[in-house]
Design a protein around this nucleic acid. Structure first.
Lengths: 159, 159
DNA sequence: TTAGATGCAAACGATTTGCGCGGAA
DNA sequence: TTCCGCGCAAATCGTTTGCATCTAA
């Protein structure tokens, strides 16, 4: 399952720099109420480099007791609708979520163990978004880029 | 829902050019048995430009009666394991599948109606795969690139 | 003949909805 | 006080597995 193994990519320097107050302010501005759950979810997301799924979020340190998945789901839905959080598909059954940061991230996923590493490199796709919009007529375009492969650990096991 | 609306992108000229015989031969070479279901699934995938989900596949013209989802799932699993088919995540609950063609495709997805269009443009990411492999130690890397936005139809409705 | 495929049914797990209560504004 | 957000329970739905039967090789 999605573990915490490191895969070489240095973690992003810019991540985790947003202050809790800033995030909260953005949520308030979006019309969300200041809830204990909201605060702790924001804090978990803020300090997480990798996208996290609801199941893991529910058990994360800082979330009181075992949080109801349905509630979490609705909160994340709200956050996503407001553009504060991004839902990310990683070929796992459960959707992953991450703060929508100013700087964009791409991911590498191991197709054996499902482990996810965040890539910290210049993304060549960003400039394509306008091009795609022009071609297709789509608006408000963003993108998602994942690399899939076999991580060193799994490659070693197979050998 | 996933509709069949057109979104401007010209459909790929190269797609659908594989002959059924070639595909079947590839499957045989991979050790799969020549089944009626296999043949019809290949044919549906071959003539489909967009990735298709199991539910739709089960009802596609050419598939006899209502095919058992479990059977379809296992078949697609086998095909994916052999590298003949790619599973594609498009932020829908159901996974999508497409033939693994020699030429790579990227997709544009409407986040309102879920409609999917296949992009027919040079993908700038392919050359990055080796770079990512070098950085992370991952092997056998491929990538998946999706653009998300609001399609013209949905944009019109909102306005 | 024999291993691989299929169909049916049931188990699973993530997501989603209904509803009444409690807390933020 | 009012309305939004929460927790609990139940409904959905896609995916997965077990098992007996069938069939391509």
């Amino acid at each position: 399952m999605a573990g915490n193994k490191q895969h070489g990519g240095a973690s992003c320097q810019k991540c985790g720099q947003e202050t809790p107050a800033e995030l909260l302010a953005a949520c308030r501005a979006a019309g969300l109420r200041r809830t204990q759950l909201l605060e702790s979810v924001l804090e978990v997301l803020r300090t997480h480099t990798e996208p996290i799924k609801i199941g893991d979020l529910a058990q994360a340190k800082g979330i009181r007791g075992t949080c109801d998945p349905a509630t979490l789901y609705r909160l994340l839905q709200r956050l996503e609708a407001k553009g504060l959080v991004r839902r990310i598909g990683l070929h796992e059954r459960a959707a992953h979520f991450a703060l929508h940061r100013a700087h964009h991230h791409d991911y590498v996923v191991c197709r054996e163990c499902g482990d996810v590493a965040t890539l910290n490199m210049d993304c060549p796709v960003e400039k394509l978004e306008t091009e795609v919009g022009r071609r297709t007529g789509f608006r408000e375009i963003y993108h998602e880029l994942q690399f899939y492969g076999v991580c060193p650990q799994c490659a070693a096991k197979s050998a």
